[in-house]
Design a protein around this nucleic acid. Structure first.
Length: 822
RNA sequence: GCCCGGAUGGCGGAAUUGGCAGACGCGGAGGCCUCAAAAGCCUUUACUCGAGAGGGUGUGUGGGUUCGAGUCCCACUCCGGGCACCA
């Protein structure tokens, strides 16, 4: 492509100027209205790829647009710089993860600048900065003191490949590690947890007030998984003073309970198991505990033979409704860590119970009458109760209420809300993460590292082990220490924190990176929080966004974030992903298309326009054979603008006339369109509107009749101003060239349309006969129903279409449409 | 299995409240300029019948509501995503 200007020179000139002049630096005491725009800080994986370009194009547009709207816009940048890839790369190269990470940070920073995205670089934050580590550790210790961090032996997901524990969220549905792909095993280890479950209810209810995509809110709601029910006793048949406690959301189906089930890890299992059944029970237990929970759960449909999934314990409990003895089974389909780890089984109304009952020959009693014509085995919808004595005839809701009352009175029942959300396991047996700042002392137990000894930093003299095991665990200089309380020899914690802890508060440090003696000054952070617009990938819909919400709520509650809102991200935008040959474009898949080559041809401006124009920002983008042509097209649009701006091939006339008025009207109507489109994140139509304006102006200027000079210049001034947030370099250059006496286009106020020029003198009224368009009439926008009808019926084409038949009905919707029904 | 999206020309997409379907761009066709090409500029481009004027059809499928449906309702097909023994 040959361009009518030197793309690289212009873009580099302006990038340097924005940086050198600190154009987008903003102070915390800025008097203007505030706006906090934030793209999720990236993992430094090297030079930017198209996913970054897309992300930062949207983010930068918001920053520049809000600035032109007169606001003080906080636009920070930083790096989520701890993490496994750097550690793995260091193992391979025999180097330190910091070297690798910092090289990648430099690459990414350089290529983000080359895109023309602007930030307040004074506020840069990165997770492995000793200063950031210090505050991450301070927060950990504050959580510990508040009882929000605790240590517990837990059955954890152990990845044999990564030699580390994974959070539930990092295990894929097929039971493999999301990073290495290894099958995840189960192990019991002492681990650190954060009590995110304390916040389950608030995390759920306060979703309602967030301006987030419904899809993301739904995913979070499902993840929290709130369910209301009753917890009650099933007395043991041989000794009713003891009882098996169960949880159910369907107390109304109590008369259909024909057996009970305990999880393989249930504490009462040994007590329940009789000698006769011990062998078979142990077989179930050992099978269930030797494999991962995920594998165990996914075997419901196939794999393990159904009868191997559970066994009779030999004991019976009493159904409090029927007073009858029902057998107790152990089965792997009941989870030990949800509810009470035991259930009442209702095979008539529960799919899983039904399958199990079928295999084991257990009785099935239906307690809700299915609707007529229902031919399934399990009915769990609404209907009148049957076989249920005092519940008979009641619908599900009424029967639930009555059954709950019954259980409260007769079976130590209590109403209970359970959540699927588990506490957040934050320990990682990794090197390249934030060290957990505690010491284990034989006498004093868990001792927090005192404030004046923070940060606890990993040593530099480590050899990254081929096995992948963290060198911290074997580095004596690191782990061997003295107890801060008693001074005796003690051992330092060698686990590090999940990197999601780093990304759970970085946006607070961005708001106040200047305070030296605190993670952030709440009064300063409060000036910016909450983030007005958060932008990132849909892949963070659950984890990062849930954890960050938890962190802020907890920080407010423990007094570290006094006066801050409890929700960090007011508006969220999740961009679509870029696909190449059907799969997500990513570094790990090795199917990246580098932006670099486009900087030489269409420039950063052209590439940005492409990403804005390609489709709705939330939709996925397919990178196809056609894509390069579309990108070239975006470059051509800029070229056509530059040529017209430079008077190329333009015919002028001296006095403005009606054709000039039409051009000015179009320019002002475009202001309205683009502004509306920006506000609803419809960037593809905003670009289209500017293309239309250029076409209109160009056509007028190139016509024989020509254009008045001021009309051309004013219209193009408007176009360039509207284009500035999308294509910042060329617009800055053109503007400076023509208006050297004025501020940069990026510092101008966003244009306001002149209402007189936006108003339509006439509108096109469609006239239909029987719903089919037969004519179009130009009418004043104020036309009345009667006038519209009269005009329509008088139109020659309508007269012809009606062929003398009198209309039976006329629907007039002035000034848009009249529909005549003969 | 459950939940949430989506389906519009050759392609990406537009149509903000039920009111002109296909804006804008890509690709294609024809032309101008040129010794020639590139670049640029102009015209045209949903399908279909027709030389043309003009007509018919058309927003995944089938029904419905309405003067009028891409848009609302019901049923279904296909595609994408999330969750998946949470009692």
């Amino acid at each position: 492509m040959s361009r009518p200007f030197d793309v690289a020179a212009i873009e580099e000139k302006w990038q340097a100027r924005w940086l050198d002049e600190g154009t987008y630096e903003v102070d915390n005491d800025d008097p203007r209205e505030r706006y906090y725009a934030l793209c999720m800080y990236p993992y430094p994986s090297g030079a930017a790829h198209q996913g970054h370009v897309r992300n930062y194009t949207f983010g930068d547009l918001v920053v520049r647009y809000q600035t032109m709207l007169g606001k003080a816009v906080l636009s920070p940048y930083g790096f989520d710089s701890f993490g496994l890839p750097a550690e793995n790369a260091a193992i391979k190269a025999g180097s330190h993860p910091r070297l690798f990470t910092e090289a990648r940070m430099h690459e990414l920073k350089t290529s983000v600048r080359r895109l023309g995205a602007v930030y307040d670089w004074r506020r840069e934050v990165f997770s492995h900065d000793p200063n950031y580590i210090r505050w991450s550790q301070t927060i950990f210790l504050a959580f510990l003191e508040a009882g929000l961090a605790y240590r517990a032996e837990a059955q954890v997901n152990w990845c044999p490949g990564c030699k580390t524990v994974l959070a539930n969220e990092q295990v894929l549905a097929d039971g493999t590690c999301e990073r290495s792909g290894d099958l995840v095993m189960r192990r019991f280890l002492e681990q650190w947890f954060f009590k995110i479950t304390d916040y389950a209810e608030e995390l759920l209810t306060s979703l309602n007030d967030l301006e987030w995509p419904e899809r993301v809110k739904t995913m979070q709601r499902n993840w929290i998984g709130r369910s209301e029910g009753v917890e009650f006793d099933l007395p043991l048949a041989y000794d009713p003073s003891k009882a098996l406690r169960v949880f159910t959301t369907r107390p109304d189906t109590g008369f259909g309970v024909t057996y009970a089930v305990v999880a393989p890890e249930h504490p009462m299992l040994a007590l329940l198991t009789t000698d006769d059944e011990r062998l078979r029970v142990e077989e179930i237990v050992s099978r269930a505990t030797s494999i991962s929970e995920i594998e165990r759960t996914s075997s419901s449909t196939e794999g393990v033979a159904a009868e191997k999934r559970g066994a009779f314990t030999g004991s019976y409990v009493l159904n409090p409704f029927t007073k009858e003895r029902v057998p107790v089974y152990v089965a792997d389909y009941v989870l030990g860590n949800y509810g009470t780890g035991a259930i009442m089984a209702v095979p008539g109304e529960d799919e899983r119970d039904y399958e199990f009952a079928k295999v084991h020959g257990l009785p099935i009693v239906r307690t809700v009458q299915p609707p007529e014509g229902f031919d399934g085995d399990v009915y769990n919808g609404d209907g009148a109760h049957i076989n249920s004595e005092f519940l008979d005839g009641l619908d599900v809701a009424a029967a639930k209420t009555k059954a709950t009352e019954f259980l409260v009175e007769h079976a130590n029942g209590i109403t209970k809300v359970n959540y699927r959300l588990r506490d957040w396991l934050v320990s990682r047996q990794r090197f390249w993460g934030c060290p957990i700042p505690v010491v284990y002392c034989d006498d004093d137990g868990i001792v927090p590292v005192p404030n004046d000894q923070l940060p606890v930093l990993a040593p530099d003299d480590v050899t990254m082990n081929e096995s992948g095991q963290s060198p911290l665990a074997t580095h004596e200089g690191f782990f061997s220490t003295t107890c801060p309380k008693c001074g005796k020899p003690a051992r330092r914690e060698t686990d590090t924190m999940d990197t999601f802890t780093d990304s759970s508060w970085y946006f607070l440090r961005f708001a106040d990176p200047f305070t030296a003696d605190k993670a952030f000054d709440p009064a300063q952070a409060a000036k910016w929080m909450p983030v007005n617009q958060y932008i990132g990938g849909i892949e963070h819909a659950i984890l990062h966004l849930m954890y960050a919400r938890f962190y802020l709520k907890a920080l407010v509650d423990i007094g570290m974030a006094e006066g801050l809102p409890r929700e960090p991200f007011q508006r969220l935008f999740t961009q679509g992903m870029i696909r190449l040959d059907g799969s997500k474009m990513s570094k790990s898949k090795g199917n990246l298309i580098s932006p670099e080559e486009y900087y030489k041809t269409v420039g950063a401006d052209g590439l940005r326009l492409f990403h804005l124009f390609a489709g709705p920002p939330a939709d996925d983008l397919d990178w196809t054979d056609q894509t390069n042509d579309v990108i070239d097209g975006c470059g051509r649009f800029i070229d056509r603008l530059v040529r017209l701006w430079n008077d190329y091939d333009v015919n002028y006339h001296a006095i403005a006339d009606e054709s000039d008025l039409a051009v000015r009207q179009e320019a002002h109507r475009t202001i309205v369109r683009v502004t509306n489109d920006f506000d609803r994140w419809s960037y593809n139509t905003a670009v289209a509107a500017l293309m239309e304006l250029l076409n209109t102006v160009s056509k007028a200027a190139r016509s024989e009749h020509g254009i008045e000079k001021a009309t051309l210049q004013d219209s193009l001034d408007i176009l360039v101003t509207l284009l500035a947030p999308m294509a910042p370099h060329i617009t800055a250059e053109l503007w400076e060239d023509r208006h050297p006496e004025l501020p940069s286009v990026h510092l101008l106020p966003w244009p306001v349309a002149d209402p007189a020029l936006v108003a339509e003198a006439t509108v096109t009224m469609v006239v239909q006969v029987n719903g089919k368009v037969k004519s179009r009439i130009e009418v004043p926008p104020t036309i009345t129903e009667e006038e519209a009808t009269t005009a329509a019926l008088a139109d020659p084409q309508i007269v012809a279409a009606l062929g003398g038949v009198a209309p039976t009905r006329v629907v007039a919707r002035p000034p848009r449409l009249v529909n005549i029904i003969p």
